[in-house]
Design a binder for these strands. Sequence first.
DNA 1: CTGAAAGCGCTAACAC
DNA 2: GTGTTAGCGCTTTCAG
Lengths: 342, 342
Amino acid sequence: MSDGTLAVPGRPTLEEVARVAGVSRATVSRVINGSPRVSPEVLSVVEKAIAQLNYVPNRAARSLVARATMSIALVVPEDAHRFFGDPYFADVVQGISDRIDDSDYVLNLQLTHPSSPSEKTRRYLLGGNVDGAIVVSHHSGDHFLASLGQSLPVVFGGRPFGEVSSKTDYYVDVDNRLGAVQATEHLITHGRRAIATITGPTDMPAAIDREQGWRDAVRAAGLSEERLVHGDFTEAGGVRSALTLLDEHPDVDAIFVASDLMASGVMLALEERGLRVPQDVAIVGFDNSRYATRGPIGLTTIAQPSQQMGVVMADTLLRLLSGEHPERVNLLETHLVIRDSA
Amino acid sequence: MSDGTLAVPGRPTLEEVARVAGVSRATVSRVINGSPRVSPEVLSVVEKAIAQLNYVPNRAARSLVARATMSIALVVPEDAHRFFGDPYFADVVQGISDRIDDSDYVLNLQLTHPSSPSEKTRRYLLGGNVDGAIVVSHHSGDHFLASLGQSLPVVFGGRPFGEVSSKTDYYVDVDNRLGAVQATEHLITHGRRAIATITGPTDMPAAIDREQGWRDAVRAAGLSEERLVHGDFTEAGGVRSALTLLDEHPDVDAIFVASDLMASGVMLALEERGLRVPQDVAIVGFDNSRYATRGPIGLTTIAQPSQQMGVVMADTLLRLLSGEHPERVNLLETHLVIRDSA
DNA sequence: CTGAAAGCGCTAACAC
DNA sequence: GTGTTAGCGCTTTCAG
């Protein structure tokens, strides 16, 4: 073992199975792939040999000739803490996972750096390890992922950056702008006038669109657009942003917060400042994740069907891979869920 | 496109690069693999051709001959919600991910069903898609994962079920029993006498060991072992278990809860029942995750170095893969972190 | 320093 | 039905 080899018994090959079963390799291959052109006797002999040797086909060899790996990548350009911290991802992954489980493909999650995927990831994705990819949480500046669709069937979770016209862009999303409008109008309807927003990261389309929705609604009502603080879609960031907001605009009477997770932080900050929700400051979040019902005050929020979005992403990719022509863009519905905070 | 093929341009092959560069395939291969036996002129010509064609080596072909895929699997037998819900996993994954990033391997997360991995996962793991695997959150009854080490280099996060004597078992863990003893003794030292525990799932070694630690400490102090409720390592489960516990044993004055996430639920339940922490009921958790500092009452808890555990898991596997003989068992230290709850 | 040739484990015509 | 024969794209002796 000091020669660097491993203590793993050599995997049996198809050839060995053939030898044990006393047939040709082609026949074994037929058995493995469930071909009907095999006689019952031979079938059973081969199956016995397979079981006896504990044989599992080598996928590298198979995919080399089949030109397909039967696996798809889920690319997440976030560090583990943000990825795990936000229930939105859990829902999306569960949805994708559910849909993939019903197929012949295996899902293969690739965590990469937020800034830009490493060379390793690049080679992995482009090196024929996967037949397609789903990219969630795309940031601007990530040129590689943005153009990945040119080399591989790709579906984005959320509208990707850049020209949507691109022939290779498939994505599923909600109308983030509209959702933000729904949230803000609810606030306006209930008499709020000094309406602020805490946005997501400015390099993410979803965050930009939600900010735009808030601007549109606020402007349409003749209100000020100046109460704005940029956040980062984390709970701790929500606390910080709220504190900044309160310092700069002590008069706010409502906040549209671009994610529930951040809203949860905002509530903490408000409590710390002795402000009551919704009496002093009304809050509307976005996601309808479990954070919306976790604290003492139920969070009014914009619901998006995260898990269903995951299902649709996977479904779109699967259909692409089977040569179908799915919708390029799939926009699911948001709706307002009213609880206590606004 | 109605013939079922995809709109993806054929990947250039090494042979095409060779043709464009006017050299042999062997030479191109040498360039790709950084062989020193290539003249500078040829090197630059080949590199130019590679860049021009945007060539990326086909990994299936490469691993077929190299008998190595340079990728390792992280197997998580949990559904997405439990996996994402518990910060412990985030830490472990971050640690693994950090260590793998420094290597030539890529990490490849496989979510599987908690009960038993699907046939697909089995074939994936055994089919030569990965060179090794890290298994976290192992449950009893999962015979396949328990014996995976016989076919593939495997490192477990947490002591796996079954005979530890097995020559193929590598794992990194903390001394869960000892951690539980530390927690319980802290409670005893502070005068608590009706000390309960809320355990994790009974099919997980970590949960069993923590329960045993509580039993040992409680028994050693001559106290009763009857205040015990089984939980499931989720926050909602913590609420339920606490409620059950309070109904069955209204006299409890302290609870050792087997995870911070559950402890967070327990606090919620206690508040609902009008019980004060720590005055009426003292709480000690386990993990020292972000849930320990999230609520209004700081949670006293047993810290385990989750992220570091991930690093060590990855490191152990990497060393196994390089033919070294790392420690079979790696036990990291726990320690008590005192906050407000006990 | 470079090329020719063999072969990794598997599938897919094509014969028989 | 079953076997024979070519490769899939790459690395790697072995010659030169």
